[in-house]
Design a protein around this nucleic acid. Structure first.
Lengths: 304, 304
DNA sequence: TCAATTGTTTGTCCTAGACAAAATTGAGAA
DNA sequence: TTCTCAATTTTGTCTAGGACAAACAATTGA
């Protein structure tokens, strides 16, 4: 019975850390120092892999390699679980509990019923959005595995999509084009934004996730969009954001609005001129009303 | 006005060829030899990228680098386009036309009506799957922009998901867990497979795309899955596939089946022992029947 | 004709150095 | 004190060849 070993390629795959990163960490920080095969190839252990996964989480949270690399795994885990947020309400706790105990059918039912009871807008702002944040935090703390987050995403996506599908084709001006940029693969925020836009009577075109900037521009022209709306999750690289937004703003016709929202959009200090920052789902309605006023459109029936 | 240049990381991302591969090709075959930046970094041109994409396709078809690397792009394209598939039927041409002219509402209507008329199984095997292949090819040939492919994906995804949602919770054995591995972000194949599994009376758990191998294993245990089914699209790195499947097979209980399907799964010559290759959507039904026979389960009502 | 052996091709790993972008620190001004 | 700007450190990704094993092609022998 031999302990399992992992090649550098496997570790890259499992942790998302690049081979270069793993090699240079070994040189600089003295961790991880794997055994070597007869051919001199690195053989990482189970423990290496476990520790690297925690480290990866901490890096995503903003810690820096040099600070945490020397700590024992117990301390890393303590750091990882440190910042418990205390403002959790009961229904969200129930949802998280259902997810953790893999009662997915019940979770689906629970969420669907909440949608029925509260209506779409309340469901999204009071249940879906906070719960998604909670799920993200729980994953960060290591209380939730990635596959559990995936299951959650699938369930909520299903509910949102079928709700959205019922209202498709009914909207009028403005025409909003929704997508995320290439390094952003989380589409839940975009779906929630679309649902809210739809409720406000706007027409939506969803491009899916990870659309290259050139294609966003082309799509805006082809679809004659009035507004391009981008969704940024919390771990979108902050520096890339300003650059991408500037580039996009420079290449879009000036009469086309450019909106950005999501946790990632809130983190950066300043956003480029000509870009509107939507600081939350509640901001979407006013922003659309404002656009309509500026465009001389009559306010939608939903406007307040 | 300067011509666009691509870094080695961008070329890796765009073509799926590894950085090592690009560097060693330059050394061995003298192509591609990109310009260098002031810091000596490789700057690939538009033409390099285009040629590399064709080469990538030819490699996938079984050609070897040494043979084709020296040829001019015109000849490469001749080699590549030689086997133009001619079995396009009128409705698929119509769908592609609607997509290219951005008549998305009409496309949605057309697809929905086809689903109604033909039923789910025929819709998937005769419309959705061939059309998706067609869209992929058209994108490869540059006839379709990425955002148009994204729109297509969103529309079909919406139709499939709402169809699937109606049958959720009705299935029995076997329990099938569907997902894709981290370098695979195309989820349409997985959705089509899920729909067919559902029609066969199986219970499905969808994990979404890009699940790390460790999490696939954990999910299979947590969900007590009978079968883990992975979907691989045409541009999944071929070498990575065997490794990943072996790793997965080694860490899953032997009583849990491991299936793989999709264009990517057909490309590799040999798949590891203990892994079942599903050579098409039509194979799913027989495979499930076979599983039921082996497990001593009664055949489903749909079986036959 | 088929199986076994030999040679060639090809992808990935290795080391170790360099550099720029990002994050941090420190100094000086409002 | 708080803010801004410059200097410094940290960190990721690039570079160059060399090495080797697995996959493939060609050759030999039965």
């Amino acid at each position: 019975m031999s302990a399992p070993v992992f090649s550098i390629a496997e570790v890259e795959q499992e942790t998302g850390l690049s081979k270069d990163q793993l090699r240079v960490w070994e040189r600089r920080y003295g961790f991880p120092i794997p055994l070597r095969s007869n051919q001199g190839e690195r053989q990482y252990s189970d423990e290496d892999l476990a520790k690297l996964k925690v480290i990866r989480r901490l890096l995503d949270k903003g810690m820096r390699p040099g600070r945490i690399m020397g700590l024992p795994i117990s301390e890393l885990q303590a750091l990882s679980g440190g910042g418990q947020s205390a403002d959790r309400s009961a229904p969200q706790d129930l949802a998280l509990y259902l997810l953790q105990t893999h009662q997915t059918v019940e979770l689906h039912k629970e969420l669907s019923q909440t949608l029925m009871r509260d209506g779409m807008f309340r469901f999204i702002t009071e249940t879906a959005a906070p719960l998604s944040a909670l799920v993200g935090e729980a994953w960060m703390r290591g209380e939730l595995r990635i596959f559990e987050e995936h299951i959650y995403t699938e369930i909520l996506q299903g509910i949102l999509r079928s709700a959205i599908a019922q209202g498709t084709g009914l909207g009028g001006a403005p025409k909003v084009l929704l997508t995320t940029l290439p390094s952003e693969q989380h589409g839940l925020g975009m779906l929630m934004a679309e649902a809210v836009c739809m409720l406000e009577g706007a027409e939506c075109v969803r491009l899916g996730v990870q659309t290259p900037i050139g294609d966003v521009i082309a799509a805006a022209a082809a679809k004659q969009a009035d507004i391009v709306a981008l969704s940024f999750s919390g771990n979108f690289p902050a520096n890339q954001m300003s650059d991408s937004l500037s580039l996009l703003r420079g290449n879009l016709p000036s009469k086309v609005g450019l909106w950005c929202g999501g946790a990632g959009a809130m983190r950066v200090k300043r956003i480029p001129d000509g870009v509107t920052r939507i600081s939350g789902l509640h901001q979407i309605g006013p922003a659309i009303s404002e656009w309509r006023a500026a465009a001389g459109e009559p306010p939608g029936l939903h406007g307040g």
